[in-house]
Amino acid sequence: MSDIPNDLQYTKEHEWARVTDDVVRLGITRHAADQLGDITMVELPREGDEVQKDDEFGTIESVKAVSAVYSPVSGTIVRVNEILEDNPEYINDDPYDVGWLVEIQMSNTSEVDELMDAAAYKTFAAEQED
């Protein structure tokens, strides 16, 4: 279980979050991208869409699997990584940078308190492996 950047926070759905003031950028972890295999399509919401905490906000597909992505926070979608529409492989290439999914303006910033730090996620992911 490597490639878990220390400057990000994590969810039990194997997603990462980068919090800047009241905006959170979301993506999936290297572990999740590897589990899915070669990603072939990403379905994301539109800018302006509202999401609730724990709601499914999109899907990521590989050849033989579909995986939903869930929002760890409530708020409004303010940016969508549109480059993924034509280049879904960017998630495999670099899930933490060019492979980000959406940015959400939070309506309740305290919800990020429930996220795990890198060390906690590392332990969580390792437990799941067994």
Binding site: M41, S62, K64, V66
Partner: peptide
């Protein structure tokens, strides 16, 4: 595009 189909979804 089998992810539309019953055996996956």
């Amino acid at each position: 595009l089998a992810t539309r189909e019953q055996h996956i979804r």
